[in-house]
Design a protein around this nucleic acid. Structure first.
Ligand SMILES: [Mn+2]
Ligand SMILES: [Mn+2]
Ligand SMILES: [Mn+2]
Ligand SMILES: [Mn+2]
Lengths: 218, 218
DNA sequence: ACCTATTTTTAGTTTTGTCTAAATTTATAT
DNA sequence: ATATAAATTTAGACAAAACTAAAAATAGGT
């Protein structure tokens, strides 16, 4: 399994190709910042290896074997991200790039030991669930902050956009995973929100709210 | 800097190319389990990049820039080996393969933090010195056990051969870094040694003794 | 049903790193 | 000094993974 093949599988999974959905050539090309013709070439190769179902002009979806492989890469990526934050004091906006490299290290023992050292974390620094060794996913009952009704409250559990600029913005505004957020008011005009964050009041744009996952309190 | 280029530089360094010595095409090819013609191709490329001095039919030596790069890869390799042993309970015969992959991860912050986490180790699990960030080497006053005179004693500080079979053999015979070894007798016939190891007597072949580094006691 | 715009594939190139086989240079031995 | 052997380089090929440009298929709109 080459690094490139692994990256394609991961991307197809993230685009929904694990749910029998057919992912288009263009969607993959855009996500990977490559050209559609390159995607076609790889689609054929992955199909030959039994990792994707590929029908000309119809896109690709992952086979069971492809899903398994994609999940193992995603598991490694997220465990390394936790390692970088918990053990090496990286900030959550610094880890993704390095994890993109570390996820391709081939050693089952290595990743199992990292998992153990971290005491088997369930979520990565951005709140994304870490698949178990046998490819099980811990999905969480969560919703976007932008979809929470006024006067409900919950705990921030994840980010949809995990780009460095967004994460740094959150840091600057004291928004972090585990913080309590209550929706005080929604502005009709621009969908901006007036929220209570850890006791303090704050106004945030729709764009921010639409990239924060919240778990509603019982 | 590609992974392949890094591996060539590291190999040339290990073969002595850091001391203005000219390393032959065949020596590099043999060490890297590749063909001489491939080495010639790479020699030209590395020369173009100013990393080696290459004279046709005469072999290559590292430039200052090449030495610097080689030392940075070796530093990463050895720090990762320490990490695997100290933090993840790998044995010293398991670490090399994984370190061969990890040494190519590109992140200065990552390796500096690993160094810090390990409290700036000076030697790797096989007793090899870890170059400092600015490329300084901690050479040790050491010699091969096979070259120690009868009735001298010292501490085992390193292995010359760090292949898994040899390391496992050492484990089985309770030979480990830090253990005290005294040469009791040398057999003229086959150069085998009669030694005292941590108080117990033991016979070892010349081949074993010629792959153990010992630091003579003052 | 037909035309058009978009998507996707094909065909042909490029780069990196490898290989084999052949040619060339250097080393060795008489 | 010359023949022979060994080491090294050259030339040409290949696989992986990308690209561009052109061809083909699909989707939408009238
Ligand atoms: Mn990430
Ligand atoms: Mn993440
Ligand atoms: Mn090693
Ligand atoms: Mn080592």
């Amino acid at each position: 399994m080459t690094r490139s093949e692994e990256n394609y599988l991961k991307t197809i999974f993230h685009l929904g190709g694990g749910n029998a959905q057919s992912i288009t050539t263009n969607a993959i090309a855009e996500q990977m910042e490559t050209k559609p013709s390159s995607v076609t070439d790889m689609a054929k190769k992955l199909a030959d290896k039994g990792l994707v179902n590929y029908v000309k002009y119809q896109g690709v979806s992952l086979t069971d074997s492809g899903i398994k492989t994609a999940l193992s890469i995603i598991r490694k990526h997220r465990l390394w991200e936790v390692f970088l934050v918990k053990k090496l004091d990286f900030t959550w906006d610094e880890v993704h790039e390095v994890a993109e490299q570390l996820e391709h290290i081939k050693s089952e023992k290595l990743i199992d030991k990292i998992d153990e050292l971290l005491e088997f974390p369930k979520y990565d620094p951005h709140g994304d669930p870490i698949p178990t060794k046998d490819g099980k996913f811990m999905e969480r009952d969560e919703q976007l902050l932008s979809e929470m009704p006024v006067n409900t409250q919950g705990v921030c559990v994840g980010v949809k956009d995990s780009s460095a600029p967004f994460l740094k913005f959150l840091d600057k505004n004291n928004i972090a995973l585990g913080h309590t957020i209550k929706v005080l008011e929604k502005e009709d005009f621009d969908q901006s929100l007036h929220i209570e964050l850890q006791g303090k009041e704050l106004r945030i744009s729709h764009q921010i709210a639409a990239n924060l996952y919240v778990k509603k309190n019982d």
